[in-house]
């Protein structure tokens, strides 16, 4: 009996390792980079820099986890960079004209909700491609930001309580990092322990099967877009709260903002644009790898343009690698694992 249990645990362990191979390899890569970093730069491993790195990563990580949901159901959201901009602009405008922090946050969360809803409804009921819809909403929101601000930054007196969200520490960790961990915890539980998470997964791998098994496919898809926009909103609030002022992005037009980093992080983490693949941990680790590299490169004197080039190459390599090892073994494992889990409970 004991032997049986032992082999059972061993099997589960092997299954687990195989299932999370991609995530583990990213983690190994991060550890490797961290280990060799003292050879390259003495500053990288300093406590201050590490906390700063975590803080910088948290904005991308939150957005990447949101992007993961949309990519999981086979969609894409190019509008999150613009959402972050709109959220930043609206919150600074409201705060400087005297609204309280709570009212402002409630307001921008509602805005995020509406953006996600519009994207989702257009994709599902409008029968449009996610790529077209979100490129359009991106372009409209970018336009709105530019017309409102005329490209100039907005600043003014912002309540202390709002700035604290971006600058305070809880224990030794900056607030954005703590919020990232909370978001990660919630999304992880959502994906691994709830019916909703299972439905997202099934909808991503096969819409017809999902529909036939009684899922409201449209609702699931809309909810993914809403989740993505909401997480982008959080990321946007944290970004402006750090500075306490809003600076519109100058590289408007084209997909050149946060959406690229978020897509890159999710894809490095194993998500596939055809849907049904990847994990929340993958998106988080992908963002962390991205953050480590963008923190380390300037320290070892890599020019920022060269850095962009390397990041582009990393994306291509990650996608090629994902295509190579995706030979459906992973899906089978996940399914069988899920099945055994259900039987055991």
């Amino acid at each position: 009996m004991a032997l049986q249990k032992n082999t059972f645990i061993k099997d589960k362990l092997i299954l687990g390792i195989k299932e999370y191979m991609n995530e583990l390899s990213i983690a190994a890569l991060i550890v490797l980079i961290t280990c060799i970093s003292p050879l390259l730069s003495s500053v990288f491993l300093a406590g201050d820099n590490l906390l700063n790195l975590l803080r910088q990563t948290s904005y991308t990580a939150i957005a990447a986890m949101g992007m993961y949901f949309v990519i999981l159901i086979g969609g894409i959201d190019l509008s999150i960079g613009a959402t972050i901009q709109v959220v930043g602009m609206v919150s600074i405008m409201m705060l400087t004209s005297g609204y309280s922090t709570v009212t402002t946050i409630v307001c921008v969360v509602l805005i995020g909700l509406v953006i996600g809803l519009v994207n989702g409804v257009l994709v599902t009921f409008g029968k449009l491609q996610p790529f077209v819809v979100t490129l359009v909403t991106k372009s409209i929101m970018d336009g709105i930001v530019l017309v409102t601000t005329d490209g100039a930054s907005i600043s003014g007196k912002v309540p202390e309580s709002f700035v604290k969200i971006g600058t305070e520490y809880i224990g030794i960790f900056p607030v954005p990092v703590v919020i990232t961990m909370i978001v990660f915890g919630i999304t992880f539980i959502l994906m691994s322990r709830t019916t909703y998470g299972r439905r997202l997964f099934v909808t991503g791998s096969n819409k017809v099967a999902s529909y036939n098994s009684g899922t409201n496919v449209r609702l699931i898809q809309i909810s993914a877009y809403i989740l993505c926009a909401l997480l982008a909103t959080i990321s946007g609030v944290l970004t402006v709260a750090r500075i306490g002022a809003f600076q519109p992005s100058t590289t408007h037009g084209g997909a050149t903002g946060m959406e690229l980093n978020a897509i890159a992080a999710a894809v490095i983490g194993g998500a596939s644009l055809s849907g049904g693949k990847g994990s929340v941990i993958g998106a988080l680790f992908g963002a962390l790898l991205y953050g480590v590299l963008s923190n380390l490169f300037p320290l070892i004197g890599v020019n920022s343009y060269l850095q962009q080039l390397i990041q582009g190459v990393i994306i291509i390599v990650a996608v090629i690698a994902a295509g190579r090892n995706s030979s459906s073994s992973k899906i089978k494992l996940r399914k069988s694992n899920g099945g055994s889990h259900e039987y055991s409970t």
Partner: peptide, 27 residues
């Protein structure tokens, strides 16, 4: 070649070359 030989989605492949070429331009 990326799209046909390595079976990468057109969206991701051209997104990658888009970033690389923009960086090359600035370099």
């Amino acid at each position: 070649l990326l799209i046909t030989k390595t079976k990468v989605e057109a969206f991701m492949a051209t997104l990658g070359t888009m970033m690389v070429m923009r960086a090359c331009t600035f370099l």
